[in-house]
Design a protein around this nucleic acid. Structure first.
Lengths: 334, 334
DNA sequence: ATGAAAGCGCTAACAT
DNA sequence: ATGTTAGCGCTTTCAT
């Protein structure tokens, strides 16, 4: 690894001269500047990032903590964050909490030791259940900015980026009404999450606002530890009147289609189904699932921009709450 | 942020005394050590990572470069790397090359400026096509160790961790033979990749070794830019004798089942299908796809261990080539 | 136009 | 047992 010292030695000038020349300071004569730059290029000199960080007290890296990398939503947001961060001159350190409170807290603590300039994160499921946010407030209290996305909490005072979860489910239910469906089921595997609750609320709002009223028996909180398809088959058997399905998570929609098929109910002739998932997963079911799709790219981009703005402004005032719209993908399931 | 200096001031001792006390040096008397430790804990002192890195010339972080985060294989390996790295006291900085040579080269270059102690990476598709490895050899030449996994190259002299790609396809074809299948198709969307080539070779080996011989017309390199299902329907129509399918990538298996259904061929009665994918994706098809499954956890763990060993040993000798076995998942598609 | 020196936070060899 | 000092690689103020 080649350093300023090394360059200065080879050229018989001082370290500070080299530093200034390389940084384009007008103090240095053109002639020496040229010599220095040439040698630096020739030796492929790269400034030591660590030394720069120590000096400037900023690392130009962002800590990203996501609950689950196998979830396409988080994977896509992560990719988008990385793209935008790169554009803005930042690296990212990624930690996966695996929905665990402890892992989330530990990751936060480790990275808060000067390794990153700020955090972008979605709360783990366990954190949202416990409603314990001390670890995050401590970071915030240390003047390290945090941007929360998707999995957020009212109890936390910071910047946030979320989808329009509630409205998107309302719109989906409306779409089912438009197809003449009346007995609509709401399936969820994410009842414990903030977004899960919002989506459930959206369903209740839509049903209450309709003439048909809300039947709580048609809201199914699936047990993730058990076979989803079995649970759905049982539900559809016990509730044969169901002619429409809307789901809050990224897998129930596909499984619902399979379950209905096994009961000889065809989609969309007998039952219409709208899921909450990505285009790719929606394409794996037959017929193709109509899905509520998050703008992952938008969420990632906005989160990164918001955080970098916050890092640069150094102020902790006027926290923003950005809402990114969902879209309904094309499909054959309604 | 609280520093050693700050502690030393508050306790009226020197910085070095504080440092030694906190690091458990026997030079310091028990009494003062206790005082120091107590204040440190009380003030929640955390050693500054950046300063430590500058001093020790090691960052205790690993750069991980993967081609595609939406690919469950890479996502799982990434998670496993992170777990193992955490155990070994390392953080990870993740970069997603998005299958681009340039992005891969840039990421490597940025992180090689002292930001990481070593790399774990899978080559991007473009890199494997171009067979251009200068950027990696430069890093290696700088004595920064690199561990390659899955997407590797013979032209690169470094540690490697791969699955038993060739044998796993051979075994899958054998399993189809055992079911009485004779006209077996090989589907791939990853013909350009090193692993794709190995898997194709495995298919050819198996067919050649069998009494049935190899029909190259039964090997289909799918065009990723076009609709996969359409391509498959056309292929199955033109080759009605096909009674067995084995695939090299993580999505063709599911799509093949759907395509066969549309042609009123039932799986597994008329055609047997074995895919190359994760348990979760395999579970989304009806009937459940039998799949060759990589030991992602093993690959990640071994890669991390190998890299950390290499970092610690400081030697660049006796590169290892670790092979991690695949397994065949249960399903109903054969 | 160039260089010397201090300092970012830490460790460690070397005094005292 | 405690303190002084130098140095990791860099920037920057203050001489010269």
């Amino acid at each position: 690894m080649i350093t300023l010292k090394e360059l200065s030695k080879q050229l018989n000038v001082s370290v500070s001269t080299v530093s200034k020349a390389l940084n384009g300071s007008p103090e240095i004569s053109e002639a020496t500047a040229k010599r220095i730059k040439e040698l630096a290029k020739h030796l492929n000199y790269q400034p030591n990032k660590i030394a720069l960080s120590l000096k400037s007290n900023q690392t130009k890296t962002i800590g990203v903590i996501i609950p689950d990398i196998l979830n396409r939503f988080f994977a896509k947001v992560l990719y988008s964050i990385q793209q935008e961060a790169t554009n803005l001159g930042y690296n990212i350190i990624t930690c996966i909490s695996n929905e665990s409170f402890e892992k989330e807290r530990d990751s936060l603590k480790i990275l808060a030791n000067g390794s990153v300039d700020g955090f972008i994160m979605a709360l783990s499921e366990e954190t949202q259940q416990k409603e314990q946010y001390d670890h995050i407030n401590e970071v915030l209290g240390n003047d390290i900015p945090v941007v929360l996305f998707d999995r957020v909490s009212d109890k936390l005072d910071c910047d946030k980026v979320v989808g329009n979860d509630l409205e998107s489910i309302e719109d989906a239910v409306s779409a089912l009404f438009d197809k003449g469906r009346k007995h609509i089921a709401f399936l969820t595997r994410i009842n414990a999450l903030s977004v899960g609750k919002l989506r459930a609320q959206g369903f209740m709002n839509a049903m209450n606002a309709s003439g048909y009223g809300l039947n709580k028996g048609h809201m199914v909180a699936l047990d993730k530890s058990k076979d989803i398809e079995e649970q759905l088959i049982r539900f559809f058997k016990n509730n044969p009147e169901i002619d429409g399905v809307v789901t809050a998570d990224n897998i129930s929609g596909t499984v619902a289609i399979n379950a209905l098929k096994k009961l000889n109910k065809s989609v969309p002739e007998h039952v219409s189904v709208i899921g909450f998932t990505s285009k790719t997963i929606a394409g794996l079911s037959e017929p193709r699932l109509v899905a509520i799709r998050q703008d992952c790219k938008g969420i990632g981009r906005q989160s990164a921009q918001l955080l970098v703005d916050r890092i640069k402004s150094k102020s902790q005032l006027n926290y923003q709450n950005i809402i990114v719209n969902t879209t309904l993908t094309e499909g054959k399931s309604i």
